[in-house]
Design a protein around this nucleic acid. Sequence first.
RNA 1: GGUGCGGUAGCCAAGUGGUUAGGCACCGGUUUGCAAAACCGGCACACGUGGGUUCAAAUCCCAUCCGCACCUCCA
Length: 510
Amino acid sequence: MTTPTTRLYNTLTRRIEPLVPIQPGKVSMYVCGPTVQDVAHAGHGRTYTTFDVLRRYLTVRGFAVTYVRNITDVDDKILAKSREAGEPPLEYSRRIAKIHAEDYAALGLAIPEHEPRVSEHIPDILEIIERLIERGHAYVAETPKGQDVYFAVRSFAPYGKLSHREINDLLSGARIEVGETKRDSLDFALWKASGKDGWGWPSPWGVGRPGWHVECSAMSMKLLGEHFDIHGGGMDLIFPHHENEIAQSEAAHTPPLANLWMHGGFLQVDSEKMSKSLGNFVTIRDVLVRNDRESLRYFYLGSHYRGPLNFDVEKRDDGRIVFPGVDEAERRIEYLYAARDAATLAAADAPAAIGKALPQQAAIVREAKTRVLDALDQDLNTSVALAVLNELAKAANEIAMAVQKLRKDKAQQDAARALAAAAVHAFADACAPLGLLHSASEDFWARTKAQRLRTRNIDSVILDQKVLERTRARQEKNFARADAIRDELVALGVELLDTPETTTWRLNVG
RNA sequence: GGUGCGGUAGCCAAGUGGUUAGGCACCGGUUUGCAAAACCGGCACACGUGGGUUCAAAUCCCAUCCGCACCUCCA
């Protein structure tokens, strides 16, 4: 019997290593959240879904997880945007943060234990800056706008240890903005005077705002202490953001800041990073208008979190914009829900004992949860976890089919029914760490139906009439007429599911 | 230039020394009035390229090519 071990890739050491919590049984994690300057795009969704899965998985593994994901609500871009919108900056950022929260909820992201905002932690930020000055790691500089405070990068010897950069290699890339009076081009701002824009908080150096990096040092220390287990974010944060966080935090108190640094790969469009500046971004809302919330989550989980993931955007002949990858994921989600439904139906009146029916399917049902967790143990191998779900779904369908076929053999049928019941539980257990199949089935079918009717501008009443007309034709054995109606409906993307008595329909994805 | 991530069958995507995850597409079958869905079976001499190590490499070593990203705000 081996102890299950969580293994995760650590950017700091560049290898996959076991998670050894600072306090046994507890995991503290801090993830850099969004700067709420604009609506969240699908790339944000990917990163936060990764950490949501990490949190769920660790919880299922028995850890008491404290998850902190901050909200950056103080930032130059927010100021600029809020002015365009004619709103006070904090009102603007509060409004945008609310939209982020709604989108994340739609993606099924569990709310972190703490969602600190920069604007609510100014005193903590000031404290850490003062401490850095005392220790000789930061200095005050006079600027035309007032007094700035900078972190003296060369005063922190290990600088570069996360991004694995040589401090001297950085010189060529560093730039000095107009009006800055840094002693060294590598130094970065801890505090900047507000100047004429006037937005800021009083400090020993006059009215100003915190630099971007120091907020995370202050908030993580406040909520998780000087030393915590996991620090995460998107890959673009490795340098300079996380490098600077390490410098500030470890210069201000005893190192290390975090044991394990995790970074998610980019979502790409045509092999290029999805980003605001390239203008190739798709917002989470854009996707959720067309696709079900769970399909986007499944799409993210289909590939490993550290690798790139391409997000296809396709324009159809009729002018509709579709996301083929997410559509594909949605079909998979449908398959999973349908399989769970089949198992649920087959499990009706099931006896308690499982018996010896269907040994192959029984093994898949029995092992599903373990196999999902084993996969996630290996640096969150979500695609293997999804493969397990697909095998489970297939087994569930087989079991349901067996229940149908075993009508004449009551004992065997009961055994199959019991197995179906076990399969339903297996779905719940196997999906828990992934955060999938969250909804009641009827909700899932109702909402996808409504969404597809809406996006295609089709009235379900008309479809019902057509289907009824076809049912009559079938009853009259007028198959030519029935098939003609079916062709008509298929052209609209309607899939017909005939039984001897009736017909149900559903709209296809895409 | 420095530092990373990636290059796996028609496509998406795991695997990281030796019984080839999973999915899509495709082909045959069960089922069906015919279909769809579901299920069964098939499916591919795959591992960027060139060397090397090994009884054995997609997997280790060396070299090299291509894509992307970071080095400046960015999940």
